[in-house]
């Protein structure tokens, strides 16, 4: 099992739009909620009301501040398993509990055979595996395998819990092996990219980059304050087409009268 399928029939995965994600954590808690009662049940929590609460989560959202010359923003960054094409988390697994499904490429852990050696979590470059101390096994994003094929759910609900919940629509689910799928097309149009592509593990999940529009976000300028933003306040100039000549009160009144008596 640990051996990888030569190729998978489908490449199911998520597309995550970093331009839209507002960091609301809906995907995080809806994932926890579905999965703590689903395939991965339970996702345990330790010290839940104490000094050091922590638990098993299959999806997390980071926030960064990023800036490139002339462009800066706060980036909310959801991250779960990317269902890689050549997942080393699978090949290192000594028991075969980790496997990549031939039919759709989903990478799963069999909780009944995992010995909890954690080696797979060391092999994953994205920190996408989660050890459940209480259960003694490794857990990870299942791509909600128990939803997407589940015909006890209405058809429209056969999508991952995080996609179902995401209020902004920043998350989408689909088959990246199908060039015509919505996720493939979005990746194509928006310049979807692989996280840490250089690592070469072939993540299937694809991220859509934040847009860098012409009126890039300006950093605040606050006169009288020692702060001058390191990457400089950049305010796009007024496009000539929008510029209008200035007026005086008299001119304005004349215009108002003219305009109304047209």
């Amino acid at each position: 099992m640990t051996s990888l399928p030569a190729c998978t029939d489908k490449k199911l995965g998520l597309s995550i739009d970093l331009d839209i994600c507002v960091g609301c954590q809906a995907c995080v808690t809806s994932c926890k909620e579905w999965n703590t009662g689903g395939y991965s049940a339970p996702l345990s929590d330790h010290d839940p009301y104490g000094a050091d609460p922590s638990g098993a989560w299959l999806n997390r959202v980071h926030s960064f501040e990023v800036s490139e010359p002339g462009w800066a923003r706060t980036l909310h960054f959801p991250r779960s398993c990317l269902h890689c094409e050549s997942p080393e988390c699978v090949t290192v697994c000594p028991t075969g509990a980790s496997y990549k499904r031939t039919e759709d490429g989903i990478v799963l852990v069999n909780p009944d055979t995992c010995i909890g050696c954690k080696l797979c979590s060391w092999a994953c470059p994205y920190g996408a595996r989660e050890y459940d101390h209480d259960d003694g096994v490794m857990k990870k994003c299942t791509l909600c395998v128990d939803r997407i094929y589940n015909d006890t759910l209405p058809e429209e609900d056969r999508v991952p819990a995080c996609v179902r919940a995401c209020p902004t629509g920043a998350r989408a689910f689909g088959d990246f092996a199908d060039p015509d799928s919505a996720v493939s097309r979005a990746a194509e149009e928006r310049g979807g990219f692989d996280l840490l592509k250089e690592f070469g593990i072939g993540p299937v999940n694809t991220y859509l980059p934040p847009r860098r529009g012409p009126a890039a976000q300006a950093n605040p300028h606050q006169p009288g304050h020692p702060a001058t933003s390191p990457n400089g306040a950049r305010v796009a100039p007024l496009p000539a087409s929008l510029a209008k000549p200035g007026g005086t009160l008299e001119k304005l009144f004349a215009w108002a009268d003219r305009a109304l008596t047209r």
Binding site: T2, C93, P94, I115, H133
Partner: peptide, 20 residues
């Protein structure tokens, strides 16, 4: 290990896993 009683399973994947 989280499940020492299953340790024997670790012998199965010698084709790919150094731990095995």
């Amino acid at each position: 290990l989280g499940h020492p009683e299953r340790a024997w399973r670790a012998l199965s994947q010698w084709r790919s896993s150094w731990l095995s």
